[in-house]
């Protein structure tokens, strides 16, 4: 269903560019005066400016993505590689365990990444990895200023991401599944 929007022709006065010009003057002058009076946020840091006094991010701010652990200290990521697939700048790189690797060091889900790297030079903090993650294992956190002296230093590996990410208490679906399976001791055939 198309909606036709009436586009009014500009009046002569508007076509002289004067109204927009005056509006621009007003806006810029207002901001200028506010800044000069010291009323703008950038100047209101108290003890100093940004690098010395870090900017306090707002609630819900989405910065760098890090991996998280569950409340039992287990890696939540199961190496499904959906974030790697969805990542627009191809910043994420996951090495799956492979046939010969150790699948998982935890009792729940039988798969976890052998290596998980995020190239923070490429990352654009878009949040698609968090959006797509079926395990709630990666979250955009509050860090926004990441620096390093080499390119290699800016590729964060699994250990670092997990350490920076901390713990995120979730529903632990794999754990509940395992508990549910253990309760069902009635399965007639023991295969192993």
């Amino acid at each position: 269903m198309t909606k036709v929007v009436d586009r009014k022709p500009l009046t002569f006065y508007e076509r002289t560019y004067l109204p927009t010009l005056l509006e621009g003057l007003k806006v810029t002058a207002r901001h200028f005066m506010r800044s000069v009076k010291g009323g703008n946020a950038a100047l209101q840091l108290g003890d100093g400016y940004y690098p010395e006094v870090p900017w306090q991010v707002a609630e819900g701010y989405r910065g760098a993505p890090y991996l998280v652990r569950d409340q039992d200290g287990n890696t939540k990521c199961v190496s499904c590689q959906l974030c790697e697939f969805v990542c627009p700048p191809k910043a994420i790189r996951i090495t799956p365990p492979g046939a010969d690797g150790v699948p998982a060091d935890r009792p729940n889900a039988e798969k976890m990444p052998r290596e998980f790297e995020i190239n923070m030079l490429r990352c654009i903090f878009c949040g698609l990895c968090q959006e797509v993650c079926p395990e709630e294992a990666i979250f955009l956190q509050k860090h926004y200023s990441l620096t390093g002296l080499t390119r290699e230093e800016m590729i964060y590996d699994k250990e670092r991401l997990l350490q920076l990410g901390g713990v995120h208490a979730g529903i632990q679906k794999w754990k509940h599944k395992l508990e549910e399976a253990r309760e069902q001791d009635t399965f007639p055939v023991k295969t192993d």
Partner: peptide
């Protein structure tokens, strides 16, 4: 397949 198990997601 044991050979392909956990090696790579097929969509890649």
């Amino acid at each position: 397949s044991k050979d392909f198990r956990f090696k790579m997601r097929v969509w890649f």
